[in-house]
């Protein structure tokens, strides 16, 4: 389908959804994005009873008709629930699961302008103010995410870990690791043993974002604008998001600041506690930080496998396979600090 045909079909779709008398789409273009999804950007003018409304929009589409495991609807509903609970997310508008429209499922949401490159946030002078305010903003927003009630918002499709969220996650990633790794990784084996011996009891079960890190935030010079990438959302231990936020890879070398290269764990925990009313158990947070580094390590293996198994030909993904050792070193550091 060419761009003209796509724009036409999208125009018709939006007109029916309104319904509007007239819809005009301008500046339709494909955005550079991940291989797992297609993202298009456009400006939309919607006319009803002589009144015209203009919105900047993006469309997220499944990569192809052959992708059976479409979860666009789930993502759409989770973002809408977060929006209703005043989490800064793009406003979502419409969803279609009818392949007759554009060939595969898609949804349309507000386009939030801003920057997403974490390296710019950590280095550019323009973001000095953002660097100052963002750790507290991110802790506060995370507390709000964890307040979204999956039952009240009918998010019953979300995967639910049962009584032991931590054990379930460790076992899931261990299974992934055993299936994906092409060589032995004694450092990961040590990490798995360490985790299995310290499974925290999970008193709270909440909505978990699942990929909460600075790379998934749209920000401006003033701070956070929007939280992105909700496709890994699930129900689980809220401390999972806290630990993931502390993973070393998201510090981009700014290692004195464990939380996304921006702030300290203590400050992050304090704001989170005040905003959520729930104390952070540092041992549970440490468990999930170790788990997060291990999870990222396993993801580096799976990224490299996508190149090696010829799903894509990508020097970037191939080279990520040699970053696994970075996570191994961090795991050894964390394990040795915790046992000495």
């Amino acid at each position: 389908m060419d761009t003209k045909e796509m724009t036409q079909r999208l125009t018709d779709f939006i007109r029916e959804q309104g319904p509007f008398d007239k819809v005009t789409i301008e500046n339709f273009s494909k955005m550079p994005g991940g291989a797992s999804r297609e993202i298009y950007s456009f400006d939309c003018a919607m006319e009803r009873a002589g009144e015209v409304k203009r919105r900047a929009m993006v469309m997220r589409q499944d990569p192809g008709a052959h992708n059976i495991s479409s979860n666009r609807r789930d993502e759409f509903l989770v973002i809408r629930a977060a929006f209703e609970e005043h989490v800064p997310v793009p406003e979502v508008f419409w969803i279609s699961e009818d392949p007759a429209v554009l060939g595969s499922s898609f949804f349309i949401m507000e386009r939030v302008e801003g920057e997403t490159l974490a390296r710019r946030l950590l280095r550019d002078a323009a973001y000095a103010k953002a660097r100052e305010v963002m750790p507290a903003q991110l802790a506060d927003i995370l507390a709000r995410i964890h307040r979204v009630d999956p039952v009240a918002h009918k998010l019953d499709f979300l995967s639910e870990p049962g009584d032991n969220a931590a054990l379930t996650e460790v076992q899931r990633y261990e299974a992934n690791f055993r299936q994906l790794a092409l060589e032995p990784h004694p450092a990961f084996e040590l990490a798995f043993r360490w985790l299995l011996g310290r499974i925290p009891k999970t008193p709270r079960k909440t909505l978990v974002h699942g990929d909460y890190r600075i790379g998934n935030v749209i920000f401006g010079p003033e701070g956070v604008r929007s939280i992105l990438d909700w496709e890994l959302a699930h129900v689980g231990d809220p401390m999972e998001d806290v630990g993931w936020m502390c993973v070393r890879a998201w510090r981009f070398g700014n290692d004195r600041m464990p939380v996304g290269g921006l702030g300290t764990r203590e400050d992050f925990f304090n704001v989170y506690e005040r905003a959520s009313g729930v104390p952070v158990d540092p041992e549970a947070a440490r468990f999930w930080e170790v788990f997060g580094n291990l999870r990222w390590g396993i993801i580096t293996i799976s990224q490299a496998r996508r190149h090696m198994d010829k799903f894509v030909n990508s020097v970037e993904l191939a080279s990520i396979g040699r970053r696994t050792a970075e996570t191994e070193l961090e795991l050894l550091n964390l394990i040795q600090i915790a046992t000495s």
């Binding site: 004694p186 050792a325 070193l329």
Partner: peptide, 13 residues
Amino acid sequence: VRRSVEDKLRIAN
């Protein structure tokens, strides 16, 4: 294990 990991990093990063 630390020595092995460090040697991997001496090559990779």
